[in-house]
């Protein structure tokens, strides 16, 4: 059975997911217009800004799992879609604005972001690890791009009771998710085409802008 077949699980899933998305506000006209605006904004970063952001995130990601997460959010734009949430946390001044301004960083991060991300990160990280473990060796290639959780990182047993541990663990988990999505985004092919087809939109609509250059 090939994927070109007009009926079958592949098409059915794409149709169903597409229909669901179409029936929510997510891909309706108004949102599409807004997405185009956002795409214009996202696409406006100059090379200098890109370089600045890349360097900044590279340095941060080296030192902190949290920043690896943020960088990957920026990179994926969706980050399983955790991406994009802090997508704009740019260079130092911007980071200051987002996370550190007026002493709000700690409050925001520990009061809002960390609990939420800890919870989501635990689920997503655990899901990746669990599913990866369930895959057979013959699926190695698939594992590589779908569940690229770093070896030795036990993302299942994430202790979210302690902020620092939670942050580190969440960072590893989400960072991996981000890495995966970065790689995955580069290989998007028929699944997306099917989805577009089922939604009835053309591929010119920027439904998930990405910043893959962040990790280049």
């Amino acid at each position: 059975m090939g994927v070109e077949k007009e009926s079958g699980p592949v098409k059915r899933v794409a149709e169903r997911v597409g229909k669901f998305l179409a029936e929510t506000y997510t891909v309706k006209g108004a949102i599409s217009k807004e997405l185009r605006k956002l795409d214009k904004v996202n696409g406006s970063f100059t090379l200098e800004q890109q370089q600045e952001m890349r360097a900044y995130f590279a340095a941060k990601a080296e030192k902190s799992a949290k920043w690896k997460v943020i960088r990957n959010w920026v990179a994926t734009g969706a980050g399983l879609a955790l991406g994009g949430w802090v997508a704009a946390v740019g260079p130092e001044k911007a980071v200051g604005a987002v996370l550190c301004a007026a002493g709000k960083a700690g409050e925001w991060w520990t009061g809002t972001a960390l609990p939420t991300l800890g919870k989501l990160g635990t689920g997503i990280g655990g899901a990746f690890e669990a599913v990866r473990g369930s895959l057979s060796d013959k699926m190695y290639a698939f594992r590589e791009w779908f569940f690229d959780v770093p070896a030795g990182k036990n993302v299942v047993n994430i202790d979210i009771s302690g902020p620092s541990k939670a942050l580190a663990a969440t960072g590893d988990a989400l960072g991996s998710a981000g890495d995966w999505l970065t790689g995955r985004a580069q290989g998007v092919t028929k699944g997306l085409q099917l989805l577009w087809k089922s939604i009835g939109e053309g591929p010119g609509v920027p439904l998930f802008p990405t910043f893959n250059w962040i990790t280049k």
Partner: peptide, 19 residues
């Protein structure tokens, strides 16, 4: 087909974010 399904699923998930 499996890979196509995974791709579709992952993209469906991604599509929820920016909107």
């Amino acid at each position: 087909e499996k890979n196509e399904l995974y791709a579709t699923i992952s993209e469906g998930l991604q599509l929820t974010v920016w909107p």
